[in-house]
Design a protein around this nucleic acid. Sequence first.
DNA 1: ATTACATTTAGATATTTATCTAAATGTCTA
DNA 2: TAGACATTTAGATAAATATCTAAATGTAAT
Lengths: 88, 88
Amino acid sequence: MGFQESFKALSDPTRRQIIELLRNGKMPAGEIVDKFQMTGASISHHLSILKNAGLVTDDKQGKYIYYELNLSVVEEILGWLASLKEEK
Amino acid sequence: MGFQESFKALSDPTRRQIIELLRNGKMPAGEIVDKFQMTGASISHHLSILKNAGLVTDDKQGKYIYYELNLSVVEEILGWLASLKEEK
DNA sequence: ATTACATTTAGATATTTATCTAAATGTCTA
DNA sequence: TAGACATTTAGATAAATATCTAAATGTAAT
């Protein structure tokens, strides 16, 4: 993980929308797919990038894989950005 | 501008380092170049991406071009990230 | 005016990335 | 156990990106 992957993950508009969707709680992959005009394979790719960056976690429950926002990574990024406001 | 360009700009490690350098105040392009093992042309390219994203401003004074961090864009990103902590 | 300096622009190349279609994997249900 | 469903993986392609060298631009100093 690290900022590299986090910011790269956030630099794509589809992935930012996915993250916004997940603000209200976990959601299965298929339901996420339904919100976009893009193949499931593409969304799956985006989800794996978000997961790799630590921004989401996944939880397999039988047929479904639930994705959930991981706020601790969001906090790390917030911390870095906030530090820019102070001289070193 | 917009989040698209901001996050893309922040997704490169060289550009994040440039931003950290500018935490302590403005700096001319050449001095920034000196901090990296990369050609001036490449740094210039990175600076133009940061500028295009609104993350830095430039101020030409004779021979030198001073770059300065623009915290208002940092604040916008902070705002978006912070909003992820609240349900919609 | 010439030269030197500071920075950017242009053009080229190799790498990364977003997306697609098709195929594979795993799980449930009839 | 077949078939349907949910999701991912593989492989391909087009577009974007980071970097370089070389050339251009603009400014200052001699």
